[in-house]
């Protein structure tokens, strides 16, 4: 996480050799991505922030297959994995559409499907939900959570509610790593949040304003329940 211009996307590009560090070392599974980008890119897949920049093929299905083709996957297997990935992002029926005719959110889903089809060891997701509505955002997050345990996910985002389940949160600001903490820690540190232009989710801010612990209720349902309990206790006391 971290403010615009903080260095998140630069970090993502360093991780697979698209950018080279001026000094210092980058190692991915012991490999230097600047020297062996192709070996590294077999293990690290990136979903770029702007979905337009990544879509290259004439049809959606070719685009989703692109990464697999580069890996030399057998035809039959490829076809299955592509179909499965397209289904996973809710775009069945879009196989023969031309990517440039898609809406912003549809393009973002196509790019994600391409990455899911490959299923690399490390997934770097640069704001994968920036163009999605609430339902689409939830679906993508569920996909990401399902990878937990057998894949590494580096999730770059501006939405605090999306990192509440992360193992660790790194905060980058003006090119410096300013925090490496558990999400509960981050949401309860008002100074850290303010200094890094982070804002708590609406539910947390309401909780805080009502004197409830901000990390506790995460959904409107939980917040409403907490308010109800409090109000009842008050009535009971009378």
């Amino acid at each position: 996480m971290g403010p615009n211009g903080g260095g998140k996307s630069t970090l993502a590009r360093l991780s697979n050799g698209l950018l080279h560090a001026d000094s210092g070392r980058v190692r991915v599974a012991g490999l230097d991505p600047a020297r062996e980008p192709y070996l590294v890119r077999r293990r690290v897949g990136i979903l770029f922030q702007n979905p337009d920049s990544g879509l290259v093929a004439p049809f959606v299905e070719d685009d989703v297959a692109f990464g697999l083709e580069n890996l030399g996957a057998p035809r039959e297997e490829m076809r299955e994995r592509v179909a499965e990935a397209i289904r996973a992002v809710g775009l069945s029926g879009y196989e023969r559409r031309e990517p440039h005719t898609l809406s912003g959110g549809e393009k973002q889903r196509v790019a994600l499907a391409g990455l899911l089809a490959v299923g690399p060891e490390v997934l770097v997701l640069d704001e994968p939900t920036s163009m999605l509505d609430a339902a689409g955002r939830r679906e993508v997050l569920e996909r990401v959570h399902a990878l937990r345990g057998n894949r590494t996910v580096l999730h770059l985002t501006h939405h605090l509610e999306e990192v509440l389940d992360a193992d660790r949160v790194l905060v980058l600001n003006a090119g410096r790593l300013v925090a490496d903490v558990a999400p509960e820690w981050l949401v309860s540190d008002a100074t850290l949040l303010r200094e890094n232009r982070l804002v708590l989710p609406t539910v947390s801010r309401l909780a805080l304003g009502l004197g409830l612990p901000p990390a506790k209720p995460r959904t409107p349902e939980e917040l409403a329940a907490a308010v109800g309990e409090r109000a009842e206790r008050r009535v009971g006391r009378r």
């Binding site: 971290g2 403010p3 615009n4 922030q49 912003g104 704001e127 920036s130 163009m131 501006h158 232009r197 982070l198 804002v199």
Partner: peptide
């Protein structure tokens, strides 16, 4: 058209 997508929360505000 989606002017705040991808912006940090402070910039969005």
């Amino acid at each position: 058209d989606e002017p705040t997508a991808g912006l940090d929360p402070a910039t969005r505000g």
